[in-house]
Design a protein around this nucleic acid. Structure first.
Lengths: 224, 224, 224, 224
DNA sequence: GATGAATGAGACTTCATTCAT
DNA sequence: AATGAATGAAGTCTCATTCAT
C-alpha cells in the first residue's frame, strides 16, 4: 500500500527479469551474482535483501519464466475453437521460441533439467517444484484433448489417458526443441514440429468418413 | 630400458568409465578432478598424464558413452528381421536405460546439452562434435526405415524424409527420457515410450487391407 | 677408459649443451626437466642419473657457457698484438653475441643474475661461484691492460687499478648488452659499444704528441 | 547508500609498495599472491579487487618504482646549476641505491629484465612499456647534456648524439649496479661509479685552455 | 534499505622428484 | 643404466556470501 512497498515489489520483479536473461545466457553456474546485480542496476549485496541465495534467485526466475510461457500459450489459443486448431496454436509457441535468434530463453530448459538432475543442483530432488510450476502447461493440453473428445473430434477411447498423452506431447516437443538447440543444421524445427504434430493428431482424431475424403484435397490427405 | 610396465590403455579406459559415473552424478561443473582421481584410484595429477584437461576427460567420457549406447542398440536389433521389430528393439534400449535405478548414466544427456548450449560450456560451438558422435544412432534408425520401405512394410512416400524422420524419433525419445528424469511419478517411461512408438509406427506403416482387419481385433494386430 | 665411461661423459655433455639452449629460451623457472629430457633425447628421469637436481643442471650449463665465452674471447684476441686492438677484439665478442637474431644465449645473463639475487634463486648467495666462473674474462682484460701499460700504450698510473678497471669495463659492457635486450629500437648495440669503448680507451691511453697528430687523419681525431 | 568507506587509492598504494618489496626479495615467479596479501595485511583474494592478475600487480609495482627513482633523481639535481654537477647528482642516486643494506629494491632491475626477455615473462614483448616507463630518466640525462652544450661546458659536436649518449650512460650505470649486486666484494660501487663518470665527463667536456689552468685552481673553475 | 569491501574455500593445473621395472 | 608412471605440494584465480557503514 505504501509507496515503499510498491518500490520493493517493482525492484524484485526487475531483478527477476534481469536474472532470467543472465541465467539463460550464461547458465546457472557461470552466471555470477555480480553480473546479475550489475545488469539489474543494483549492488550485488542488495540482491541478498530480496533473495536468500543465488539458488533463490534462480528459482524465482524460472517460476516467472514458466508463468510467461503459460500466459503466452493461453493467448495463442484464445481465439481458436476447433480442438485441432487449439492444439496447433499451442504448439506454435514452440516455433515462436525456436525462431529467436540466440536461443537464449530456451536454454533455460537445459538449465532447469541440469539443476534438477545433478546431485549438487539447485533443484535436485525438487522435481515436485518444477512439476508444479509446469502443471499449467500440462493442464492446458489435457483440457484441449478432453474438449476434443467431448466435441467428437478426438477418439473417445483416449479419454482415460488424456493426462498421460498430454505429458507425452509435452515431452516430445521438448525433445524437438532440445535437438534444435544442438545447432544441427539438418534440423528444421518447424518441419519437425509439424511432422510430429501431424502424426500425433492423425492417431487421436476420429477418422473422416470416405465420402468426405472424396471432395477434399491436399493437406487433409496427409492425415488420412 | 624397461620402466614400470602399465597398460596405459587399460588405465585410460578405467578413468573414462569412472569419469562417466562421476560426471553423470555431479554434473560437469560440480565434478572435480580430485573426485575423479579418487574414484579411479589415482592421484589427481595422474589424470593429467592421460588427459590434457578436465574438458578432455569429459569429452572422452561422452564419446565412450555414445559408443556404448550405439553398440548396445546394435546388439538388441541384431536378431530381428521385421523392420517394426527392429524399431521396437532399438527403442527398447531406452527402456533399459530408464530401468536403471539411479538414472545415473542418462543424466549425461543433460550434461551434454548443457555443455553445448551455455557460452562457457565445454562443448559450446562444438555441436559438430556431438552431432558426429551421435551420428551412429541416427544412421541405424535411418537404415531401419529405408529397409522397411524396401520390404514394403513402411510407406514408400517417406523415403525422401527418412533421415529427418529418424531425427524426429531420436528427438522425441530423448524428450521422453528427459521428462522421465524429472522424477515425475506420473510418468511411466515404458508406457510413454510404447505409446509414442505405436502412434509413430501407425503413421508410417503401410495400412493393412480391410479384409484382414475384418477378422482381427485392434491392438493385437499392431504388433503383427 | 672403458667405452661405457666415454658414453657417459658424452651424454653428460649433450645434456649440458641442450640444457643451455632450453634455459636460454625459456628461462630457468619456465624450463621443465621434461623439456630438457626431450630435447636431449633421454627420459626425464635419466637426467637424475647425471645431475642431482634441476639446479645442478643449470649450474653445469652456465659453467659450460662461461667457458665457451672465455674460449671465444681468447680466440678473437689471439692474433692481435697492439693492446688497443686486443681490447677491441675482446669487446667484439659482445657484438657477435648481440648480432644473434634471437638473443637466446645472452638471455642467460639475465638468468644468472636472477638466480643469484633472488632469495629463492638457484645461485642465491653463490656469488662466489659466478665470480669464479667469470674470473677468466676479467683476467684476460686485466692482462691486456697491464700489457698495454708495459708497452707504453696505456698510462702507467692506472696499473694499480687494473683489476678494478677491468671489472668496470666488464660491467659497463654487460649493461649495454642488457639494454640492447630490451628491444629498444633506438639502441644500436654496435654504435653504443663502440662509443663506450672509444671514450674508455681515450682516457687510459697515453696521449699522442702534437706533432704526430699533424700527419694522422680521421678516426684518430675523434679521440683528441 | 553509504557502504564501508575505504580509501581505495590509499590501499592500492599500500599494496603496490608492499608488492615492490616482496617482488624484489623473491622475484616475480617465486613471490606468491598469498605472500603479497599477507605482507599487505589483506586476504589474497582481496588483491584481486585491486588488480586483475599477478602480472598486473607486478607492472603497477614496477611503474611505481620507476616513478620513485625519477622523482628522487629530479630532487637530487634540483639545486645544482653546473651541468657537470647535475650529472654527478643524478648518478649519486645510484650510490644511494647501492648503499642500501639489502639491495632489495634494485634487484627489481633484474626482475624487469627477466620478465621482458623470457618467453613466459610478464613483460615479454612489452619492451615498449618499460621503455616508456623509463623514458623520464633518459630525458633528464638528455636534457642535462643539451643544457651543458648550450652553456659551453660540453662539446657542441655531441649534440646530435645526445639521446644515444644518455642511453649509453644509463646502460653503463645499470651494468655497474648489477655487478655490484653480484655480491662481489672486490666491487666498490662508489669507486666504480666515480671512475666511470669521470672518464665519461672527461670525454664530453670542452677541454680547459692551458693559460686558464695556469692561474686557476682546479675545481673552482669547473663550476664557472 | 543499500552497498562497496573483504574473504575463505575450493578448483584446475604444473612440475620436480621418486619409484619400480 | 634407463625410464615411464605417479604424485604431492603449490600457485593463480573465482565467487557466493558476510560485514560495516
Amino acid at each position: 500500500m505504501s509507496p515503499l512497498i510498491v518500490d520493493k515489489k517493482e525492484k524484485y520483479n526487475r531483478i527477476v527479469q534481469v536474472a532470467l536473461i543472465v541465467f539463460s545466457r550464461q547458465g546457472y553456474a557461470a552466471a555470477s551474482m555480480q553480473q546479475i546485480g550489475e545488469a539489474a542496476g543494483v549492488g550485488k549485496s542488495t540482491l541478498y535483501e530480496y533473495f536468500e541465495s543465488k539458488a533463490d534467485v534462480f528459482i524465482a526466475a524460472i517460476q516467472a519464466w514458466i508463468d510467461q510461457i503459460t500466459c503466452r500459450m493461453t493467448a495463442l489459443m484464445e481465439d481458436k475453437i476447433d480442438p485441432i486448431e487449439k492444439m496447433r496454436a499451442a504448439v506454435e509457441l514452440v516455433n515462436e521460441i525456436g525462431r529467436q535468434g540466440d536461443n537464449a530463453l530456451n536454454r533455460l530448459y537445459i538449465e532447469v533439467y541440469e539443476q534438477m538432475i545433478v546431485e549438487t543442483g539447485v533443484l535436485y530432488k525438487r522435481g515436485d517444484l518444477v512439476h508444479e510450476m509446469s502443471a499449467g502447461i500440462r493442464r492446458i493440453l489435457t483440457d484441449v484433448i478432453l474438449h476434443g473428445i467431448s466435441t467428437g473430434v478426438f477418439k473417445a477411447e483416449i479419454a482415460r489417458d488424456a493426462e498421460r498423452i498430454a505429458a507425452n506431447v509435452t515431452a516430445c516437443i521438448d525433445g524437438l526443441l532440445l535437438h534444435n538447440l544442438l545447432g544441427n543444421h539438418l534440423f528444421d524445427l518447424k518441419w519437425q514440429v509439424d511432422y510430429y504434430l501431424n502424426t500425433f493428431i492423425e492417431t487421436i482424431r476420429v477418422p473422416i468418413p470416405r465420402h468426405h475424403l472424396a471432395d477434399t484435397t491436399g493437406k487433409t490427405e496427409e492425415v488420412t
